[in-house]
Design a protein around this nucleic acid. Structure first.
Lengths: 258, 258
DNA sequence: AGATTGATTCTCAGTGAGTGGAAATTTCTG
DNA sequence: CAGAAATTTCCACTCACTGAGAATCAATCT
């Protein structure tokens, strides 16, 4: 999934593979390791790093290591803004009601990617990160996103090697297919300790133009499973309100545009 | 501040100027307008757009227009993570206590840039956007960030043309210098209708390693000015807690690194 | 301190990737 | 349905990019 080898001979692809080198890094990389991760010759790497830094795409720390620069962050904020902007207030409202970790995720290939998250300081289970990804079959949001994909996709997905992040992760194809069918029918997914021991999560789909484009989820300790029934209607309500918000007037769309 | 003309002859800088073209756009741009904004010849633009799209840096909508792709967003999430991660829970807690719009901003050149925001659906004054920027002298967070800059910076800042986003914005140099001194002394900034009529905002600095690296702010309706005194201690407390969190153990820093 | 290792910067001649004007094609617009 | 605008494809020229290697610089070891 990472950078190297996907670069052709084009300069652009080389520069991009440098950015890609950060994709599953811990945040800061030395020039040498960027070169290694991206598969580019050292001198080339240095030249490109220099250009990226000058532009603001990379930032050099006091230790000489590089990090992604705020300019990339800033431009990145423009991606997928519609969903995030519309959904966020409702995620916040859900948090107000429950004070549990609230997630918003979309599908990115064979993984679910968290695009927003609301959490306070009390719940410390900060395992997921905005921008982070998890396998589709091993989380409530992921299962929702998978369940509403076309059959051919689900079939192909289940044919792959299914990783088990937690000892309790269901990886049995037959069982998963069954569970996914239930999720699709009930429009709710409840998963217990699939991603991490001790955590329980529930999720609901968000539909737009007849397609499931995202999923809202709630995560809390698995020993509080009794509260699921209390949270389910709140979660469903949130999903519906987000769907409504997605349909609303486009506001500032195309004002300055050309 | 925007893209064009900053590109040298290098391919990389051209590709980057395409991304920069989106910086103050409404989100989606046609290929032709990208070409215009970036100052690149049409055919060159098309080739580069194609490469960026293939990589995931751009996304082509059903209308043929381009948007920033999720891959940029995802990589962008890695920038400035430390501050955002440490601060966020406390911003959320502050929102819990006040239910007013909570902001976290850093300085970016002569502007304040919002890097995080907590808000629900009740307060609708969604004027600021995460990733958005405002002039330093016209907002509470901005004034905090400006007040703690070295004198030469403040002097140079005040020499410039000072825009007035609201009819009440203070642009008088003498007056501003005075206000900034007060902000620095009290470690609090209270601004009324400086950015937008009807809005009041208060802000406090966040210090790290002896430097002010960010500011927390609270925004609400200006006719509720009486509540300022109630919010100030909460705001100060939040700022202090964030400062504490910044000092904490680095957690996952440099684990996978190399 | 001197030696060793590794990271970073600089140089430079060869060359092929990038360039962009122009023409062909498709898609809007009135 | 004409006319304009946006998009796509083409291609010969050439200049920016390449990357091995040498030179610095900065730690770490003996």
């Amino acid at each position: 999934m990472a950078g190297q080898a996907e670069q052709g001979p084009s300069v652009t692809s080389r520069a991009l593979s440098i950015l890609a080198a950060f994709e599953d890094s811990s945040g800061s990389l030395s020039a040498a390791s960027i070169s290694e991760r991206s598969g580019l010759p050292l001198s080339t790497t240095y030249r490109l790093i220099g250009e990226l830094e000058e532009w603001g795409g990379l930032r050099r720390g006091s230790d000489g290591r590089y990090q992604i620069g705020m300019r990339i962050w800033e431009i990145g904020q423009l991606a997928g803004r519609r969903l995030r902007d519309r959904a966020h207030p409702h995620l916040q409202d859900l948090f107000d009601l429950t004070h549990e970790n609230v997630h918003l995720a979309i599908r990115d290939g064979v993984q679910a990617m968290y695009v927003d998250k609301v959490y306070g300081s009390r719940r410390l289970s900060v395992v997921s990160r905005v921008g982070g990804r998890v396998p589709l079959h091993a989380s409530a949001v992921g299962r929702v996103l998978l369940a509403f994909e076309p059959d051919w996709f689900i079939t192909a997905y289940l044919k792959r090697d299914l990783e088990a992040p937690s000892p309790n992760t269901v990886t049995d194809r037959r069982m998963l297919a069954q569970l996914l069918a239930e999720v699709k029918a009930t429009r709710i997914s409840v998963t217990i300790e699939q991603l991490r021991p001790g955590a329980l999560s529930i999720a609901a789909p968000i539909e737009f133009n007849g397609e499931v484009v995202a999923a809202v989820g709630l995560v809390f300790e698995s020993n509080r499973y009794r509260e699921v029934s209390r949270f389910l209607p709140l979660l469903k309500g949130t999903a519906e309100r987000i769907e409504g918000a997605m349909l609303g007037v486009p506001m500032r769309l195309g004002r300055v545009a050309q």
